[in-house]
Simulated assay, not measured.
Amino acid sequence: MPVHVAREAPKLWRKICSEVSVEIALLSENWKHLLAGIVFQYLHGVAAHGVHYLHRPGPTLQDVGFFLVPELGQERAYISESLFSVIFCSFVLWTFHPFVFQSKKIYTALIWCRVLAYLVACQILRILTFYSTQLPGPNYHCREGSRLARLPPPESVFEVVLLNFPRGILYGCGDLIFSSHMIFSLVFVRTYHKYGVSRFMKLFGWLLAVVQSILIIASRKHYTVDIVVAW
């Protein structure tokens, strides 16, 4: 066994070096697209934080998903975030697997160019929708009586552009239609469905997306319409 490992190690190192050289060449050609996509993630965060200043808490709207899906409760709201973290991290790791494993050829730089392009397109639509219509947030910290439900006017522009970090990231309200978590999950699952090789993992990915949808509703982080529109 040690002899086999020692024999395979140089092959793995050559594989990694080969992939790195190819990816560097692709990165040099596409870095502007990647950078633009990454910068827009920040701009999307600024837009989502900005709409919180417009949010006005009110009675939770009637929602068929809330009738059908039992409420998890505030103490178990972390479950949907945990599943999203699993989906996110698994996809990121998969995009870098060509550096190590021999399988269907994908290029990490090109995959992320396409993923970010789809994310940006979806996020532009999302910004337009949640600024067009502000709904009273169903999340616990967005309801009437919560001190986090409304934000006072910003004291400086830095409070907006810095997203009031970290509270502005964790306790946002108003950016409802449609779910950002589902945008990421569905883009990731759809990308793996197109470029992945394991049929089981493709089906499992779609199953996770469905479970994620249900958990978001059960956590009362979004209305059902936010999930339906995202799909």
Score class of each variant (00 low, 15 high):
7 R>K: 12
92 V>R: 11
143 R>G: 03
56 R>A: 12
196 G>P: 07
22 V>S: 08
214 I>R: 04
34 L>R: 02
156 S>W: 05
130 F>A: 00
154 P>T: 06
41 Q>Y: 12
134 Q>T: 14
174 G>Q: 01
137 G>C: 10
51 V>G: 02
170 L>D: 11
109 A>P: 04
156 S>F: 03
115 V>H: 06
163 L>C: 07
72 L>S: 09
45 G>N: 08
112 W>P: 02
156 S>N: 14
51 V>A: 03
135 L>I: 08
168 G>Y: 03
112 W>C: 01
188 F>M: 12
112 W>G: 03
224 T>H: 09
35 L>Y: 10
71 E>P: 04
177 I>M: 13
15 K>R: 15
118 Y>C: 14
139 N>K: 08
158 F>K: 05
95 T>Q: 11
118 Y>V: 14
31 W>S: 12
161 V>D: 04
118 Y>S: 11
28 S>N: 14
142 C>N: 01
136 P>L: 05
188 F>P: 06
7 R>S: 13
204 F>C: 13
30 N>I: 07
108 T>Y: 07
84 F>T: 00
131 Y>L: 06
217 I>Q: 01
108 T>K: 05
168 G>T: 01
117 A>R: 15
173 C>H: 00
118 Y>R: 12
133 T>M: 13
96 F>M: 13
25 A>I: 00
56 R>W: 07
201 M>G: 00
116 L>P: 02
159 E>N: 07
163 L>V: 02
156 S>G: 09
39 V>R: 06
226 D>L: 05
156 S>V: 03
56 R>P: 03
88 F>M: 15
51 V>K: 01
142 C>H: 02
217 I>E: 02
224 T>Q: 05
189 V>Q: 08
133 T>N: 11
33 H>K: 15
173 C>G: 02
197 V>P: 07
45 G>Q: 06
202 K>V: 12
29 E>W: 06
191 T>K: 08
77 A>L: 06
100 V>N: 10
2 P>K: 11
166 P>N: 06
41 Q>K: 04
122 C>P: 04
101 F>W: 15
182 M>W: 06
167 R>D: 13
49 H>P: 06
117 A>Y: 09
9 A>D: 06
190 R>N: 15
160 V>E: 00
3 V>G: 04
53 Y>E: 03
121 A>R: 09
23 E>T: 05
199 R>I: 06
175 D>A: 10
61 L>P: 02
160 V>C: 03
28 S>E: 15
128 L>N: 04
126 R>L: 10
89 C>F: 15
227 I>R: 00
214 I>N: 09
215 L>K: 05
31 W>C: 14
14 R>T: 02
231 W>S: 11
228 V>D: 01
72 L>M: 13
183 I>T: 11
44 H>A: 09
